[in-house]
Every structure is written in structure tokens, then in C-alpha cells.
Design a protein around this nucleic acid. Sequence first.
DNA 1: CAGAAATGCTTGTAGATACAACTATTGCTT
DNA 2: AAGCAATAGTTGTATCTACAAGCATTTCTG
Lengths: 166, 166
Amino acid sequence: MEQATADRTPDVASQSDGAAAQNPHGDAWGALTRTHAAIVQRLQEMLSAADFPPLPWYEVLAAVSEAPDERMKMGDLAEALVITRGGLTKLVDRLVKAGLLERTFCETDRRVSYATLTPAGRDLLAEMRPAVIAELEVAFSANLSVAQANELRKTLDSVRGSACGT
Amino acid sequence: MEQATADRTPDVASQSDGAAAQNPHGDAWGALTRTHAAIVQRLQEMLSAADFPPLPWYEVLAAVSEAPDERMKMGDLAEALVITRGGLTKLVDRLVKAGLLERTFCETDRRVSYATLTPAGRDLLAEMRPAVIAELEVAFSANLSVAQANELRKTLDSVRGSACGT
DNA sequence: CAGAAATGCTTGTAGATACAACTATTGCTT
DNA sequence: AAGCAATAGTTGTATCTACAAGCATTTCTG
């Protein structure tokens, strides 16, 4: 039997979804999307199985935790996560309701509000982080040397550079 | 002024969202997510500006168009797009309503249904494809040689391999 | 220093996605 | 051949996200 009546597709990705398979670089894009989707799916399954909050919550907590004073302006946070501001407002609302974040305000500019990590948020992040890292290790470390991973990162960064700028 | 009252974050991605920045490979994952998000965002903006349907519609049409007889089993399609079956049913519903796809059925197994390209779907795809490819060229060809793109594809495929197959 | 423009965030609403339950058909076991 | 399990797809519901409009605050300009 299949563990439940789950709806998820069983992981195996087809070799070519044809997203622009004409140009010489199209396959690179296809590989990028499929790999991204596969890892996200894997992370989400792991989090759900471990009774952890969903991936976006982790991403918020992780981003905030690395900012100075463990707080981040809403706008910067939306930008870092590449989601809309409106979406972030509601996402942070949920984390606040769960006690993982709190909103704090800026003295000098009363428009800005910060998402600030609470002790509970810090604790949860400390629990989740090893699990997430372990999952990523499976995907990356297993088949890639550190040098290869660095090369991959550099290549992706340069692609993003030309995709963003202009 | 900002072209409208758009909500989107203005493209610039921060250098480190900290999604697991501990491990040596974590940065590669960060680069992967950010690059993916940046390109998807760019594609969506382009499609919306050109009054084309959203990206998932293109992905469906492109996938189906490359399958034998321009038709694909629902399950295979969901798998190729890495979305749930339930989600795909509704997505295909919309494309059918728009006249771009039609459902056809299998003679030998009456459970399966195919999403089949209509002439209108083929025409629309022919219009959209050059625009999508051009956008990808900007991101990939601009900064990557064909050899580098191939290397990138191979690396990503190996990562996906270890992420999928246990 | 007033008024207009820009900035930062939130809210209302509609659309899309996932999850779980359900139906229908096929395959397997005895 | 009967019955149970597996497979293929759809549907109901809740959640999440984007888009667009809105409010509050700050900055720019004459």
C-alpha cells in the first residue's frame, strides 16, 4: 500500500519536460527547474514527516536569524525570499501567531516594521536546521565535491546576475 | 513612478538568505533557489507583459507538444511538471476551457485519460515559445558557453538523481 | 513650509495549490 | 470467477499566494 492516500507524484522526474528544448541552453533550464522542484519536494516531505512547520517558515526563520539583532525589515525579507510584500505580511502574521516572531518598530522611520526572532523561534530553528542541512547534504554532498559545489554556485550566481540586472 | 501599483519585489536578490549557510554546500542550494526564483519571475513578467497565459500553461503545452501524438497521460504530465495529480486535473480543466487542450481517452484502459493538444494550443505554443526561449537565452547564453551550460545540466542532473532515488 | 511624489507596509479579493477522500477501472490471488 | 488490492483520475475543502488598492509616513520640490 501507499502509506496513505497521498496525492504527491512519486518522485521520479521525466528526463525532458520540453520547456524550450530547442536552444542549446534549454536543457540547462529544464534541469534547473526539475532539480529545484525535486529538492523542495524532498524537503517538504521530510519536514511534514517530522511534524515541523512548512518550508517557507524555515526560510523566514533562517533569514531573520542571520540578520543583525535577529530582525529584518519586512521589505528586505520579502526581497530575500523572492515573494511579494503582501504575501510576506500574511506569512509573518502566521509566524507571529505561532509565537516564533514578533513585530518590532523603527524609532527613526515609523513606516518600517521589523520581523524579529523570539526565543521560541530561535529554538525551533535550532531544531529544524540540522534536519534541513542533512537533507541537503544527501542531495549535494553525496555526488558533488566541495569544489564542484562551489563551481555550481558560481555558475548559478552568474546566471542570476544576467537574469536580474536589466 | 513604478509602472503601476505592482507588489513584486524589484528583482534584486540579496546575497545570502541563509537557508542552511552552515554546511559547505548550503550556498549552492541558496544559489539554486534564488536563481530559479529570479528566472521564473522574469519569465512571468515577460509573459504577462506580452498578454500571454501564465507560465504553468506554457509548461503544460510544451510538455504535451513533445509527447507522441501530442498527447500525454494525466499522471505522466503531473509527474513531468512536478505538481500533484489533483492540481493537474484543475490546471488542465482551465486549458480545456480555453480551448488549448482536449481530453481524450484510452481504448485499452478506461481509467486513463490523455491531455491532447488542440490546433489552438499548438498555435499558441508556437507564439509563446520564441518569447520564452529568448528570455532564457538572456539568462543562460549571455554568460555561459554551451560547454558550461552542459556542465551545469550534468551537475544538476546528478544532484537531482541523488535527491530522488533515495 | 506646504503639497506632491515616493516609500513601507497592510488588507480585500480572487485564483491557484496541496491534501485527503472518493469513484471507477484494472490487476492479482486463490 | 470472486474478492481484495492497486492504479488513474476527479472533487471538496482549506490554505496559501499574487495582484491591486489603500493607509500612514517620509522625502523631495518649488
